[in-house]
């Protein structure tokens, strides 16, 4: 049994049918979990499997909502993904488990509008200070062609 299958088997043993989708590539394991077990799975990986290193968190707008995906591990990379609703996207913060998650969650908060609950410092990070509230540039509805005026006042 390969290393990837081994990890997936252990995850399935610990969480059963909570892991409702999975995919294996070379040195990569993707598992999909419901939102309420997202932080539990990460907690299990960090505390029981010693996967202290968080690569990053990816946020993607998919058809039925917003997907957030935490990539853990130094060699073998386990990606824990979950989908949340588009209207009021909320997800638990994993900063208490992995302090390094802070900047990644702040980035997703700004670019996709996901609110990470119990995040220590969810303020503006990557967007300019005068960026309008409630405009999330990585959403599909945001038109990337609209560029800023080079100078104000020209019509």
């Amino acid at each position: 049994m390969s290393m990837e299958e081994e990890v997936l088997r252990e995850l399935k043993e610990a969480f059963g049918d909570k892991i409702f989708e999975h995919k294996i590539q070379k040195m990569r394991v993707y598992v999909k979990v419901p939102i309420d077990s997202y932080s539990d799975v990460i907690k299990y990986l960090v505390l029981s499997k010693g996967m202290y290193h968080l690569e990053t968190i990816t946020g993607i707008e998919v058809k039925d909502g917003i997907e957030i995906m935490a990539h853990l591990g130094t060699g073998l990379c386990i990606s824990v993904r979950t989908t949340i609703g588009k209207e009021t996207p909320k997800a638990p913060s994993i900063c208490d488990l992995i302090p390094g998650a802070e900047f990644y969650e702040r980035e997703i908060h700004e670019l996709l509008g996901v609110v990470f609950e119990a995040h220590p410092n969810l303020k503006r990070f990557v967007l300019p200070d005068d960026w309008p509230e409630g405009v999330y540039p990585l959403r599909r509805s945001f038109e990337s062609k609209h560029n800023a005026p080079l100078r104000e006042g020209f019509e």
Partner: peptide, 29 residues
């Protein structure tokens, strides 16, 4: 990760095609 998009006062938008068209004419402003 981002563009600056000022939304105050008079703002106007050029699409990339308009920009191309204007650069063909040799006049950006």
């Amino acid at each position: 990760v981002h563009f600056v998009d000022l939304k105050k006062g008079k703002s106007w938008v050029w699409t990339i095609d308009e920009l191309r068209e204007r650069s063909k004419r040799g006049r950006l402003l």
